[in-house]
Design a binder for these strands. Sequence first.
DNA 1: GCACACTGTGTGCGGCGTACGCAGACCATA
DNA 2: TATGGTCTGCGTACGCCGCACACAGTGTGC
Lengths: 239, 239
Amino acid sequence: METNEVELPRVLQQLWGREGPARPGPKPTFHISEIGAAAVRLADAGGLGAVSMSKVAAELGFTTMSLYRYVEAKDDLYVVMLDEAFGKPAPVDEALDWRGRITAWAEQLRDALVRHPWVLQVPLFEAPLSPQQLDWMEAALRAFDGTPLTPNDQLSSMMLVNIYVRGTAQLTAHLRTDDSADQLYARRLAMLATPDRFPAIAASLQSPGQLDIDFEDDFQDGLDVVLDGIQQLIERRKK
Amino acid sequence: METNEVELPRVLQQLWGREGPARPGPKPTFHISEIGAAAVRLADAGGLGAVSMSKVAAELGFTTMSLYRYVEAKDDLYVVMLDEAFGKPAPVDEALDWRGRITAWAEQLRDALVRHPWVLQVPLFEAPLSPQQLDWMEAALRAFDGTPLTPNDQLSSMMLVNIYVRGTAQLTAHLRTDDSADQLYARRLAMLATPDRFPAIAASLQSPGQLDIDFEDDFQDGLDVVLDGIQQLIERRKK
DNA sequence: GCACACTGTGTGCGGCGTACGCAGACCATA
DNA sequence: TATGGTCTGCGTACGCCGCACACAGTGTGC
């Protein structure tokens, strides 16, 4: 009888704690999650660029090449970092309706991205399969419990919110570190977007309230637009 | 009298054709857009990783260091590449309503991203100011002509659609290159997302129609959800 | 107690971005 | 037309990076 586990990459096996027991040779000095934590520390402090195999190894008091006993390539390190950075999502509040629940989820996700902005720069080539990422996925899906959304609807709605949060986080990432950046941008835009070639842009620059951005309000407003769309889908499914 | 132009970085000045005329010394052999085109060619063929200063220079028959006469750093090269890759958006079709127009815009954007998937991997730290990117921005804003949306509404609605397209493109990018990837993912997910810890995920895996993904349909459905949200905003603004 | 799989180390390679100094080309001015 | 100054393009070199590979030591299962 074959278990036939659609074999996972080694990193994922380690993250899921699927280690074969008791093998010959010396015991590993630490768990990959410690490597991930060290890498996250570096990234938090100096951005993703500050994360290199040698720096991570140095952080742990090891040589560069030791890391390759735990990780097959740098991409694997990224996987571990992501899993480490997100942490566990707060449990779903059953008292709220779906809108309140998914909003709380979105805010949590946003906060995590603000705490670890480098997450948005991590080049990823595979869909998420690490434990904590599935926890987040699970939490989002549960927010739609009790709605008439089909499983597929729930999945795509989650993706929609996920995409929204990541997208806005990316757009505002550089503004958060430099307050004057948006004003400089507005002035440059005003200079380049001449009314003859860019009437619509020029017009939007005329409008007031352009210069004081409130991240919190903008985030909520945009999210509400997305959720309004999902709400319509829910109404449609009710019939 | 000071022109006081909120001085642009040199790359942008070159992209906008704001060159000071007639200076001593030999004439530049080419324009940065040629460098950008060469880099885009490399990226299209071998991904963003295939783009290095030396490779681009070789593509043009030049030495590596020559490029630094046109570009201050590699990040500048990315700016040029992006401007080059997007091209000009098709003119807005006045016959359509806002929904038809922004849909057409979104489809165009998606097609551009499918043609140049590496765009999604380009690390960017500044808001777009290059000519063609402003063209795209302008086109999107014009789609909302005639709606009661305020300029700020239009801006955030555009961002919403932009974010949606980029997000979905990112998610489906790796699926397009490998048809079996999603099935492998589904099987791995089924193995890891046990009903005790991940009931919602497990449930959604039970649902039918999971395995045959239709990019086109999924894209349109999700986009419609987003547009439904914007429509509600429009209704609200009407009053 | 023995064999052997496994851990951690050292060396080294190829490639990257780019700082810097130099030769020659070309224009503005005299 | 002669000249001076400045810009272009090139060569060299440096310090990083990810990682292949060979090697020594370690501890478990037989």
